[in-house]
């Protein structure tokens, strides 16, 4: 697949499991990348814990399902879920349309800000998926 500019925004951090993390102070917003939504195809269902639940960096905490496949989602960092995107229950396809904007999954209160250093930059992630595709 082609990866034009802007598909992997520079101000985000990325995981090997194809989640992105945007950090604003002590709050992180999490979603899945353009690559992830494109590989999955039409997303029809999202299952994540409710606000208040803890998540652990690197561990599975929910699923995103397309017509054909179930994909686990992994927490980029540890913390407590503050908010789940309320639009996704009725319109999970928002993730396909706008994976970094309206298709965000949830917001986390960061417990270990140092964990962010272990995530990939946009340039590193681009390189990573090119290698994974080959």
């Amino acid at each position: 697949m082609s990866q034009g500019d802007g598909i992997y925004p520079d101000d985000l951090k990325y995981t090997k499991e194809h989640e992105w993390l945007a950090v604003h102070g002590s709050i992180g917003t999490v979603g899945i990348t353009h690559y992830a939504q494109s590989e999955l195809g039409d997303i029809v269902y999202v299952e994540v814990p409710a606000a208040g639940a803890p998540v652990v960096g690197g561990e599975e905490f929910g699923t995103v399902e397309s017509v054909k496949a179930v994909s686990e989602i992994f927490a980029p960092v540890s913390g407590e879920i503050l908010e789940v995107n309320p639009a996704l229950a009725a319109h999970p396809e928002t993730i396909n349309r706008d994976p970094y904007g309206d298709g965000w999954l949830l917001k986390i209160r960061l417990a270990e800000p140092k964990e962010i250093d272990a995530l990939m930059s946009a340039a590193e992630y681009r390189k990573y998926i090119e290698e994974e595709a080959n």
């Binding site: 195809g41 039409d42 397309s66 017509v67 054909k68 396809e93 396909n96």
Partner: peptide, 9 residues
């Protein structure tokens, strides 16, 4: 081919 554009479309 499993899909061309989107299964739903």
């Amino acid at each position: 081919p499993v899909q061309f554009s989107s299964v739903i479309e």
